Simulated assay, not measured.
Amino acid sequence: MGAIVGGIILFVLGAIARFALEIDMPGVDSAMLGTILMVAGAVLFLVGLLLMLRSRKTVVDTQNAPGHSVSERRDPPPNV
């Protein structure tokens, strides 16, 4: 969850640097810095999202009885 929030924060900071700030420092272009931060934020967000979805597991219980079977699907608690 931390990578997702970090990605959003980086993206917002990059958008602010890209569209709202003008930095007058030699060798630093605010538009390029903002673009780099936005791309890094988007990548971090996607990585965090993929890691979160990858760690999710589904438990399947199947019980067979004469003449029929019952399957139960459930997600384990988040701390497992």
Rank of each mutant, 00 (worst) to 15 (best):
Val47Thr: 06
Glu72Tyr: 14
Leu53Cys: 06
Glu72Gly: 12
Val43Gly: 04
Asp75Trp: 06
Arg73Thr: 10
Leu53Arg: 10
Phe11Ile: 01
Val5Pro: 01
Phe45Val: 01
Arg73Cys: 04
Arg56Gln: 07
Val47Leu: 08
Arg74Tyr: 10
Thr62Gln: 04
Ile36Phe: 10
Lys57Glu: 11
Met38Arg: 04
Val80Met: 11
Pro76Glu: 15
Asp24Met: 09
Glu22Arg: 14
Leu51Asp: 13
Gly41Leu: 00
Val60Gly: 06
Met52Ile: 06
Phe19Lys: 02
Thr58Arg: 09
Pro76His: 13
Pro66Met: 13
Phe19Trp: 07
Ile4Ser: 01
Ser69Gln: 15
Val59Thr: 13
Arg54Val: 11
Gly27Asn: 04
Asp24Tyr: 05
Arg18Lys: 12
Pro77Leu: 07
Glu22Pro: 04
Asp29Tyr: 02
Gly67Ser: 07
Pro78Ser: 11
Phe19Gly: 01
Arg18Val: 03
Val5Arg: 08
Thr62Met: 05
Val12Phe: 10
Arg74Gly: 03
Gln63Lys: 12
Val43Asn: 02
Gly7Gln: 00
Gly41Tyr: 00
Ala17Arg: 01
Ile16Val: 14
Leu49Arg: 05
Ile16Gly: 01
Gly34Gln: 01
Gly2Phe: 13
Val60Ile: 13
Asp24Gly: 10
Glu22Ile: 11
Pro77Glu: 04
Val12Arg: 07
Asp75Asn: 10
Ala17Met: 11
Pro76Leu: 15
Pro78Gly: 05
Arg74Met: 05
Val80Trp: 09
Val60Lys: 11
Gly6Met: 07
Arg54Leu: 14
Asp24Phe: 05
Leu51Val: 12
Val39Gly: 03
Leu53Asn: 11
Ile23Ala: 06
Leu50Tyr: 07
Thr58Gly: 08
Pro77Gly: 05
Ile23Pro: 00
Gly6Ser: 12
Val39Asn: 04
Met38Ile: 07
Gly34Asp: 03
Ile16Phe: 04
